[in-house]
């Protein structure tokens, strides 16, 4: 296992996930597509970075995203002009991340707590017991009277939902967001 690559990826690339997801959501309307696309972008980034680490990670990430989108758009043969034009706004989008990252630790914690509260009840219980209480899966299963496989599923759902909510700007919950492309405009103005 490449610990250095792991650390690099987590520290240099993943903090831009919210911005990347928003960027992709403007190009693709289905959340599932966005997640697949993001996955492929990450894979490309990891592949390159395992050989040479890019000097400006976020620029590299968005360049990779843009290239992949162009590839896919060409492939789909439904080249809509606005799709390609839209790709040029990367820089603007990248810039508004810095403000996001400046949110204080306390605010982040509040947001996390808020999202945690909104998880389905079982997910919340399982995540709490596994992560905070540090209980093994079996113990959680016994405690909640559930099968281990069910505990495992709840945990996955909890982590997955939180991941998307924390970084993906809640693609799954607010579908409205990416229905109108003009969403980019206000961000320009900032």
């Amino acid at each position: 296992m490449d610990k250095a690559l792991e650390a690099w990826f987590i520290q240099e690339i993943l903090p831009y996930e919210a911005a990347l997801t928003r960027y992709l959501a403007q190009k693709r309307s289905r959340a599932h597509d966005v997640e697949d696309l993001r996955n492929d972008i990450y894979i490309r980034v990891l592949e390159s970075a395992s050989a040479v680490r890019p000097t400006v990670p976020r620029a590299f990430l968005f360049a990779t995203a843009r290239n992949l989108l162009i590839d896919r758009t060409r492939h789909d043969r439904v080249v809509k002009i606005d799709q390609l034009e839209g790709l040029a706004v990367t820089n603007v989008l990248v810039d508004d991340i810095s403000t996001e990252q400046q949110a204080s630790g306390r605010q982040q914690l509040q947001r996390l707590a808020h999202l945690f509260d909104r998880l389905p009840r079982r997910c919340r219980e399982v995540l709490w017991m596994r992560k905070i209480e540090g209980l093994p899966q079996k113990a959680v299963a016994v405690r909640l009277g559930l099968a281990e496989a069910t505990v495992e599923k709840h945990l996955y759902r909890a982590v997955k939902t939180l991941s998307e909510a924390l970084n993906g700007n809640a693609i799954r919950t607010d579908r409205v967001n990416h229905e109108h492309e003009s969403d980019i405009e206000p961000q320009h103005g900032k």
Partner: peptide, 21 residues
């Protein structure tokens, strides 16, 4: 690679969840 991406992403989230404590 897909596994690595998933592992890194969720490891980060997992770490953040720890702050709830």
């Amino acid at each position: 690679m897909s596994r690595q991406v998933a592992y890194y992403r969720f490891k980060r989230t997992w770490g953040e969840v720890g702050r709830l404590g």
